[in-house]
Design a protein around this nucleic acid. Structure first.
Length: 779
DNA sequence: CTGTCCTCACTTTTT
DNA sequence: GTGAGGACAG
């Protein structure tokens, strides 16, 4: 196959430039993945052994998709031998091979963020530090930041500037926490995410023979999303590629959205310093989006000061303008989106998979979700609570973790009394203190408990029993298949029975099913024959578990890849594209996030995030904001995002005034998808509570332009002497206790009629009008 | 030791 | 509204 014929000029040049360092600056939608996959395919066609190619991606999903695409391009099954994966998974693999050199067992456990946080909490507790001052997530962030810049806990505690900074912020104990944290990890034979990269750097720095081994082994390196790499990742690549410098990095500074976790845009800006003979290719033609989308995206990103100069353009058609809408509440925003999807789907004959709803924070998914469910639109939420982070799954995985690595204290503590076996908190605390005192792992202590009676006989006996059970599981670890092993553990630990019996509880059935799903996933894994050499290789539980912590929800192969609308954060949407994209929650303090308002750099990152969101769209982009939204359980008033005013109005169709018109004059026209939505949402309960579910009338399910126009006049015709009946959204009212306020929403009927009112002095209150005796100040 | 009830803090974004 | 963690009774 002539690979190169599918590429444009620059793409072709970039693909053909195989020997030597190169950087591809790839604008959104410019065929970045295409170039990467074709380049790898091209290398293989040229005769490069796939085993000598290392391709690093940002997500597992990207790796998998790229692999599939290469397999389509290259004959045979060769392509699967490319070392392709995330930084974390590839180097975890290498670390397992070399673990002993840096003092870890080959079966070390990878701790996820929950595990890490849990350790931090324990340390804070033991050290009697206030967890309000030392917020676990912030402490972890600080440690993570240090590691990503290759500052060990030793370096940290010897760096006067860092220590001073910590003292200045009143958190002088951070260095100590870092040290203890690392000790705990080591005692548990565990590494956190950052350690995987940190320790890889140690390995390559301190063991020249290892460095040379991998430098010889890999001849070609390709790095995707290079703008999102941190210093630690940068240095790994630099070291490995140092021998022959066949390094290709692909990225777009305009899409750098992970600075918050240490990504360093300088990595891309400074490439030419490390590699003077660097060849740079700029992919500037966008093949994905319409003229309007590209233009509006360009107008947004132009507001950023710091960027590599480039001009993204497209030959695609103009397309529709970007539609901008506002609603009164987040629930109305949800309805608006749901209705629009419904109508576009029907008028344009497209699939649900062509739609995506993108938001800044996971918490925003709820209102969208409810609205979609209400009119029976199938959807899938990515991110948020992942399968692997559900309690029952974490519990069962903890069993497997302990069996594989009994030193894994986090896992051990999770299961030592699960199901209940009479080992309570008091005993566990005593054991932990004792283990710390002896400086041994918790497992080492309980394994030899008979000879160290620090607990009442009865309790000690129960613990010995538990330890014996774990030991018995360990016997078959190397000989049994992953599934046989997993099933054996699940049944003989009492875990299966306890979940089975709990099926009549609220979430019981789901838990049980989740457990079964995990087991069937393991079964699938056991029976797979993806081994590089020969099919009859036994797939062990150890193998299954080794990078499970690195899997996220988005990586799960979409089995029931039905026709579904996609809901995800903008971060999660990076690299994806959809015909119709809804960007919701464009409100100040939400997007841009409140926490980003401190510095220009942070705002610029938010803006890049906005840019990423817009450029996901192929055909049309919709934006919306809600004037009020629930935060921390109560209603908050919000203002439109500053980003909205940065959009070039030439490409915008502004509907933010619609709702005012819709209540009296405006009639929905045929293609006014949103207008109809407003008619309806206007007098619908904005807050779906228990009642709204069952009281839904059949008309609820028919989102149509034709309905309910007659009710749109709402209050205009109502003549009633009781003032509470004439209260309208937007009015200024007076309350005896709360003072002056503005009516945000109204819902309910008759005696139940309620108003959400924002009071200047008292905040937002929901009032039952029958009792509230509001007086109208201004219409 | 276990279960239940109450309080409170919580929201960025992810490997 | 939710989930984690503390207080307290059995």
């Amino acid at each position: 196959m002539n690979l190169l014929s599918h590429l444009n000029g620059v793409q072709k040049d970039a693909v053909e430039y195989t020997d030597g360092p190169s950087m591809i600056i790839a604008g959104a939608g410019s065929g970045k993945t295409r170039v990467l996959t074709y380049k790898i395919a091209h290398l293989i066609e040229k005769g490069v052994d796939p085993f000598q190619i290392m391709a690093l991606t940002f997500t597992n999903k990207a790796a998998r998709e790229m692999k599939e695409r290469i397999e389509h391009l290259v004959r045979g099954t060769e392509a699967r031998n490319v070392w392709m994966g995330t930084f974390h998974s590839i180097f975890a693999r290498i670390l397992r091979i070399e673990a002993e050199k840096i003092g870890f067992p080959q079966n070390f456990t990878i701790y996820d963020t929950d595990d890490s946080k849990s350790i931090i909490k324990k340390i804070l507790n033991e050290q009697q530090l206030d967890d309000k001052l030392y917020k676990p997530s912030q402490v972890l962030g600080r440690i993570s930041g240090a590691k990503n810049n290759l500052i060990s806990h030793f370096d940290y505690n010897n760096n006067p500037e860092i220590l001073q900074a910590d003292r200045d912020s009143g958190k002088s104990k951070l260095g100590m926490i870092y040290t203890i944290y690392q000790e705990r990890l080591r005692k548990s034979s565990a590494m956190d995410f950052d350690d995987l990269l940190f320790n890889t750097n140690l390995l390559l720095r301190d063991f020249p023979e290892v460095l040379i081994k991998y430098q010889r082994r890999f001849k070609y390196f390709l790095v995707d999303e290079y703008q999102d790499t941190n210093y630690s990742q940068y240095l790994i690549v630099k070291r490995l590629a140092a021998m022959n410098e066949n390094l290709t990095v692909v990225g777009d500074d305009a899409q750098s959205i992970y600075a918050f976790r240490g990504a360093n845009i300088q990595n891309i800006l400074n490439m030419h310093k490390d590699y003077p003979q660097l060849k740079t290719f700029k992919l500037e033609q966008n093949y994905r989006s319409t003229q309007n989308i590209v233009a509006v995206a360009n107008s947004v990103i132009a507001k950023n000061k710091k960027q590599i100069e480039k001009t993204i353009w497209t030959e695609n058609h103009d397309g529709e303008k970007i539609r901008l809408h506002s609603t009164l509440t987040e629930n109305e925003e949800g309805s608006l989106v749901a209705r629009s999807i419904f109508e576009i789907k029907n008028t344009k004959a497209v699939a649900y998979t062509d739609f995506a709803v993108l938001y800044r924070t996971n918490a925003q998914s709820r209102s969208i979700e409810e609205a979609l469910r209400r009119i029976n639109i199938p959807y899938r939420i990515y991110g948020g609570q992942s399968f692997y982070s559900r309690k029952e799954i974490k519990d069962l995985l903890s069993y497997f973790r302990v069996v594989i690595n009994p030193n894994d204290e986090e896992a051990l503590l999770r299961i030592i009394n699960l199901p209940k076996r009479g080992i309570g908190q008091t005993s566990i605390d005593k054991l932990r203190v004792e283990a710390n005192r002896l400086n041994i792992s918790l497992w080492d202590l309980i394994e030899g408990l008979e000879s160290n009676p620090i607990l009442p006989r009865a309790t000690a006996l129960k613990i010995v029993e538990f330890a014996t059970m774990i030991k018995s599981f360990r016997i078959d670890l190397k000989t049994k298949s992953a599934f046989d092993m997993a099933e054996h553990i699940t049944r003989h630990s009492g875990f299966y029975t306890s979940l089975y019996q709990a099926r009549d509880e609220d979430e019981g059935v789901m838990r049980f099913e989740n457990m079964e799903e995990l087991l069937s996933g393991i079964k699938e894994f056991s029976e797979s024959d993806t081994g590089e050499e020969g099919e009859n290789k036994l797939h062990s539980l150890e193998e299954f578990m080794q990078d499970i912590a690195l899997h996220t929800d988005a990586d799960q192969q979409d089995k029931n890849e039905a026709n579904q609308v996609t809901l995800m954060t903008i971060h999660a949407a990076k690299g994806l594209e959809f015909s119709y994209v809804f960007i919701v929650g464009l409100e100040e303090n939400l997007f841009p996030s409140l926490l980003s308002l401190n510095s220009r750099a942070d705002i610029e990152e938010e803006r890049r995030l906005f840019y990423v969101a817009i450029t996901r769209g192929k055909e049309q982009v919709f934006m919306s904001y809600a004037e009020s939204r629930y935060k921390w359980g109560n209603l908050q008033y919000s203002e439109p995002s500053r980003f909205i005013s940065e959009l070039d109005p030439k490409y915008i169709e502004d509907h933010t005034a619609d709702k005012i018109l819709s209540s009296d004059t405006k009639k929905p026209s045929k293609n006014d998808l949103f207008g109809a939505g407003f008619q309806k949402t206007f007098e619908k309960k904005p807050e779906p509570n228990k009642l709204s579910k069952k009281e839904e009338t059949p008309t609820e399910n028919v989102p149509s332009n034709l309905k309910k126009i007659e009710t749109s006049g709402q209050g205009a015709a109502t003549v009633n002497h009781d003032q509470s009946d004439s209260i309208q959204v937007g009015m200024e009212v007076y309350h005896d206790r709360f003072g002056i306020g503005k009516v945000l929403t109204l819902d309910g009927k008759g005696a139940d009629r309620k108003a959400t009112v924002f009071f200047t002095n008292a905040g937002t209150k929901i009032l039952i009008l029958r009792f509230a005796k509001l007086r109208i100040l201004k219409q």
